[in-house]
Amino acid sequence: MTVHNLYIFDRNGSCLHYGEWNRKKQAGISKEEEFKLMYGMLFSIRSFCSKMSPLDMKDGFLTFQTSKYKLHYYETATGIKIIMNTDLGVPNARDILHQIYSTLYVEYIVKNPLCVLGEQLSSDIFSTRLDLYIRALPFFSPRAA
């Protein structure tokens, strides 16, 4: 089991942070292009899910998986979106993404007056802590499977 990469988008669709761990194959397009595609796909899939839903739903779209990877999606009411790609063995990661939001994003970005909201995150402490957090996850190690 392992973590491939992680995106954080704000409500306007700009990518605030991108982190990469065990990603062996790149998409072959520029990162900007990739962020745009990712956000566009999420935007469509979200509106599709809420249109198809037989009941009014609160959380909406949570995750999808292919034969090779699993995408975990977490969105706050303020429109911050955290996306984590992992391999298939990883169980529900909602709590983890919520933790990343509440203990890392809010603590180190929102509460830091020098971090302008809606701009690419430049805080070193945030990146370091996020990296440590991901590496400490029980399913991070590729050999744990």
Binding site: K58, D59, T76, A77, T78, S102, Y105, V106, K111
Partner: peptide, 15 residues
């Protein structure tokens, strides 16, 4: 605009 993020992080209130 910042406090709301703290609020959402600390309370488990959804939309």
């Amino acid at each position: 605009v910042r406090l709301i993020e703290d609020f959402l992080a600390r309370s488990s209130v959804g939309r």
